[in-house]
Nucleic acid binder design. Structure first.
Lengths: 355, 355
DNA sequence: TTGAAAGCGCTAACAT
DNA sequence: ATGTTAGCGCTTTCAA
């Protein structure tokens, strides 16, 4: 800005030296509007075959590329979407982002990252999201029921899709059938003969936490295994949380469990650590199964049996849905995705014989 | 676009209903140019105190926010930078991105994600990067010596900074002192009395791989431990690679090592898995130390002793440096970052007594 | 100290 | 089938 004079030429070849529509048009001996019509591939407009090829040729020769900024200004659209993430060092978010990037790219949009502090007092989040007149829409991911971020998204004045969760007052969201995923996990344990099955839960308010807890209880109920609250502890979604909750269960349980279903991969990793620190063997003494798959599931010992979830696809579908919203092709996105499959690894085995 | 008529009003409040500079100016009874001057906070221009406050007030009342697209078109700048990443489910990239996002945000830029297939035949990468007239500059991260991506970056016509590596023909890069990091790791093992120290290396061409391998050899040489090639295997940067390489060393070693230095966190995780599968105990029989810290280092059992690297800062500095380049404040960015500290956890202990 | 006016590159009526 | 024209919202000379 200040060194504007320097900016000309060498430093910005892409921005200054790039051929404009005007260049193409004049070189091809036509008006810019004509050039625009053919270069945009507008079907409704008819253009002479010879002029069309002439324009196309010059465009290729000049390596013409439409300036998206100009197009944006004209269209009052940025052709980019933002994704708000609370943390990146979490495999779930990484996969969501990869999917969203793919979706955006397929539709000609860019994906812009906005890191949102998970802390409740991140007032700045509002400003950053709301003032974002850089995006046509927002993908919102939160782990907890972060009403600050959600509130900010609503005030941002652009359409948004909530990912990985749903909630009341939220029109558009894509989320997993957590109940079903939990059921698959717990039924797997039941099929191995387990009856004392612990659960490390999320906070019990967000939809995923509630759903998986409900799925856990449903699966037990179906086979008449009584629910024992001493087998449940709140872990949240972190490794440390999982370890702490596992220790709590091990200490508080009226009778020790032979299996545990931590709510998510990170919590399961922590749980395995805690279990092994007690000298308890996985899976001989205690089976572990969880929801979500990722590199870490194969990395730890024993590798974890998990219920795979279409996380990357959720990101992809989220981007697609959001862009549909933006372009007015849809008015509401509400989709519950089903789990993929149970991946059997080394962390589950038959229940030990009854004492 | 097609449903343009629908776009007016309800669907796009942020884009259509947002106050423009014109709105502010007319409401304040001044010309847009005057409004622009004060709203931009231009120091050099003097504006009457009363008009200034009047403009500021109306702007606040109207919740005015400059339209960045218009500003971009005018300035021939996008005020955003892109980051090209080969994979996201890798703690190193996650941290780089978080740092880069913070840096970009601090300077008023947006960060845009471009996923670049690591595959050598990803010709599309060229097109995607080169045609990106959505960004003023590029942050390039590659694991391997991916000349395709590098070539694409060079042709993209915008300044770029290579992260995590350097290479000949690359003007701007920020990378770690891998040699030093490796030395710290190996010296730690030596100080514990280890003499037979294995190394799982990256490919031996990229700078990080070479640097760490050299650091390993240097540290050995300093204390006159002879180099034994049977203690070295190529692992690359993945969990599976680490496990395979560890198995190779265990089988090919003329005499078993008492310690191992895998080149990076992921490889170390794989190595620990492989070691434990052989019934060898960590750290009693075999110590493990690596470079890079991350959640997974604490998550596995035993938790890994690692040399912490300022990865997030590398992302931050990369963004800062790139923006300096873009704005003409710098003409060259070349920075080698030093390791932070050795974090002692449970994976290293004194060398077992000599057989 | 403030205003007038041109123009960034593109699109889309509206002419011809 | 092609050209003319009027902006999108902003910044920045140049005048007054």
């Amino acid at each position: 800005m200040q060194k504007k004079s320097l900016d000309t030429g060498s430093l910005f070849p892409a921005l200054t030296a790039r051929a404009t529509l005007n260049d193409v048009a004049s070189q091809a001996g036509v008006d810019v509007s004509t050039a625009s019509r053919v270069l945009r591939g507008d079907q409704k407009q008819r253009v002479g075959e010879e002029t069309r090829t002439r324009i196309l040729d010059t465009a290729k020769k000049l390596n013409y590329r439409a300036n998206i900024t100009a197009r944006s200004l004209r269209a009052a659209k940025t052709f980019s979407i933002g994704i708000a993430v609370p943390q990146l060092d979490n495999p779930v978010f990484s996969q969501i982002i990869m999917g969203a990037e793919r979706g955006a790219r397929e539709r000609g949009y860019s994906l812009l990252i906005a890191h949102i502090g998970e802390g409740s007092s991140d007032d700045d989040a509002y400003e950053r999201l709301a003032s974002t007149n850089r995006v046509d829409g927002l993908l919102i991911t939160t782990l907890d029921d972060n009403s600050v971020v959600l509130h900010a998204a609503k005030k941002a004045g652009v359409p948004f899709v909530l990912l990985n969760r749903t909630g009341q007052g939220v029109d558009n969201s894509i989320y997993f059938d957590s109940n079903q995923a939990a059921k698959i996990a717990v039924q797997h344990l039941i099929s191995l003969g387990h009856t004392r099955i612990a659960h490390l839960s999320g906070q019990l308010n967000p939809s995923t936490g509630i759903g998986r807890f409900a799925g856990y209880r449903d699966a037990l109920e179906e086979v008449n295994i009584p629910f024992d609250p001493s087998l449940v502890a709140v872990s949240g979604y972190t490794i440390k949380g999982g370890a702490d909750a596992m220790r709590a269960v091990l200490q508080q349980a009226k009778e020790l469990p032979s299996a545990v279903f931590p709510i998510t991969l990170s919590a399961a990793v922590g749980a395995v650590m805690a279990i092994q620190q007690y000298g308890i063997r996985v899976p001989e003494d205690l089976s572990v199964v969880t929801v979500h798959d990722g590199p870490i599931a194969e990395a730890i010992f024993p590798p974890l049996t998990t219920v795979q979830m279409p996380v990357e696809k959720m990101g992809f579908d989220g981007a697609m849905g959001l862009i549909d919203l933006i372009e007015g092709r849809q008015t509401k996105i509400n989709c519950m995705m089903q789990p993929l499959q149970l991946v059997l690894r080394g962390s589950t085995s038959k229940a030990p014989h009854r004492r």
